[in-house]
Amino acid sequence: MSIQHFRVALIPFFAAFCLPVFAHPETLVKVKDAEDQLGARVGYIELDLNSGKILESFRPEERFPMMSTFKVLLCGAVLSRVDAGQEQLGRRIHYSQNDLVEYSPVTEKHLTDGMTVRELCSAAITMSDNTAANLLLTTIGGPKELTAFLHNMGDHVTRLDRWEPELNEAIPNDERDTTMPAAMATTLRKLLTGELLTLASRQQLIDWMEADKVAGPLLRSALPAGWFIADKSGAGERGSRGIIAALGPDGKPSRIVVIYTTGSQATMDERNRQIAEIGASLIKHW
């Protein structure tokens, strides 16, 4: 067993022997301040990774656009098919120029040779490549099948209805392509620590998230040296922004954090800054 596999296998073990965790309302004060600064709703939840206990939450059962955070769930569904012998990570998928959609920095470079399922998941999570996500959605049967996968996990809230990039439209009061912070946090925890996926697939999923290259201005910008984070960000229309993450000190994750916002007129930089400040408060009061 590799060191990384050992780390993920012992996530519940280490967490069980940690000192009790206590909620700190100071972080919620910052979440509410972010709402004021952005002029928009902000949803927040913080779960203990081992027990699933909610440590703090704000608007945990209000719907927010998922945006690209759905790509972690998508690759979880792909990995479940791999575990069941219905898919192979090494299978190569070929596609054409007509398949390319807006923001496809990886797939646009491989029109000639195609990409493997493993490479597509890596591109979808680490670079948020939209064509990679659409190609992977095709392998599982489309958005409705991802929703069905989530329902089978016990998540009857999260739903995907459309493809990239239309799913980022974020129309107010439109339930399409949305989740709730509580539902997303619980589902992410199941994917990373539950028995739904094999140990190898859980490790692969967290490795992809740990290698995320496009979430630097968010929670990662607030992390002290030595902290662990595996995350996936999302951005959408109407001032929408979000991030889902597993993080913790001492090089291992111990909490799940989900943050979503929508309806702001603020710039992307300002949305990023507010999420980073929430992260800084979380870490300060850990």
Rank of each mutant, 00 (worst) to 15 (best):
D161L: 03
T112S: 11
D231M: 04
E61F: 14
K71L: 00
E108H: 15
Q274T: 07
E277K: 06
G85R: 08
Q86M: 06
A34M: 10
L55F: 07
I54R: 15
S254I: 07
G114T: 04
L223V: 15
P65G: 04
T131W: 04
N272R: 04
T158R: 01
T179N: 01
T267E: 07
V117E: 04
P25C: 14
R41F: 06
D83C: 04
D161H: 12
G141F: 05
T116N: 15
A133H: 02
R238P: 08
D269I: 07
A246H: 05
D33Y: 08
A185H: 00
L247M: 14
V42E: 00
A246S: 08
L188S: 05
N168G: 11
A170K: 13
T139R: 14
R118E: 07
N168I: 05
F58P: 01
W208H: 03
A230F: 01
A235L: 11
T261M: 14
E237M: 08
N98Q: 07
I125M: 07
T126A: 09
L79A: 04
S281A: 09
G242Y: 00
H285S: 11
G76V: 05
Y44Q: 00
W163T: 08
D99Y: 09
W208Y: 12
G90L: 10
A170M: 10
L247P: 02
T158Y: 00
D129N: 01
I93R: 03
R238Q: 08
R241Y: 03
R41A: 12
G43S: 09
S68P: 00
H156D: 08
I244Q: 00
V72G: 03
I140K: 03
E175N: 09
K284C: 07
R241K: 15
V214M: 06
E195H: 15
E145L: 11
L38S: 07
L282W: 02
A266Y: 08
E87S: 12
L74Q: 04
D36H: 09
Q274G: 11
V117H: 03
L150C: 14
R176I: 06
Y44T: 01
G234W: 01
K144F: 07
M268H: 11
I171N: 15
L38F: 06
V31S: 04
P25W: 14
E26K: 12
I171F: 15
K213I: 05
T261E: 08
A222S: 08
L120I: 10
G141C: 10
P65C: 03
E145R: 11
E46L: 14
D250A: 07
A266V: 08
R238W: 10
S122N: 12
D231V: 04
L100A: 05
H285N: 12
S104D: 03
A215L: 03
P25R: 06
L28K: 14
G142C: 04
I259D: 00
I283P: 03
T27P: 07
Q204M: 07
I243R: 00
R273D: 13
F58D: 02
G154I: 03
T131H: 04
F228D: 01
V106M: 15
T116R: 12
